Amino acid sequence: MGRNLYILAGTLFLFALVAFGLSVSNVAQQPGSPGDASLWRTMGLGFFVLSMVIALGGIFSTLFEQAERRAEEARAARRRKP
């Protein structure tokens, strides 16, 4: 599950970079463009924070899976060694 969270975090980070790029380019200042520069910056910041939270969830998920696997290996080793 950790790998899926990393992929989701990476995708959201890419969206954050695109939104920040749109906020500094002239695309956001053109008439008829969707929103203004501050809206793009806010969306970029939201995507960035959300991607960091999801990446943290992926890290915790990976750490807990590793700890569970090592505990299971230690229990199996104790059972084999009488």
Rank of each mutant, 00 (worst) to 15 (best):
F47D: 00
L39A: 08
Q66M: 09
G2C: 10
L50N: 11
R3Y: 09
G35D: 02
G46K: 06
S38W: 12
A55Q: 08
L14W: 14
G35L: 06
R41V: 00
S23Y: 06
L12K: 08
L45G: 08
G21R: 06
S61V: 06
G58I: 00
L50D: 14
F64W: 15
Q66S: 11
P34R: 00
S51Y: 13
W40E: 00
V18T: 05
E68S: 12
R70M: 03
R69S: 04
R69L: 03
P31E: 03
G2N: 10
S23I: 02
Q29W: 15
A76Q: 15
F15D: 01
G32E: 02
K81E: 01
A74S: 10
A76G: 02
I54L: 11
F13A: 11
A76H: 13
F47G: 00
G35R: 05
M1C: 09
V18F: 08
R3H: 10
K81F: 03
E72Y: 11
F64P: 13
L8I: 15
T42I: 04
G44P: 02
S51D: 05
R3L: 11
S23A: 11
A76K: 10
F20A: 04
V49Q: 08
I7C: 13
S33W: 13
P31K: 07
G2M: 07
F60V: 05
A28M: 06
L39S: 05
M1N: 10
L5N: 03
G21V: 04
G35H: 09
F15V: 07
F13W: 15
N26T: 09
A37H: 15
V53F: 04
L50V: 14
K81G: 00
A76N: 13
A16D: 09
L22R: 09
L63H: 10
A9D: 02
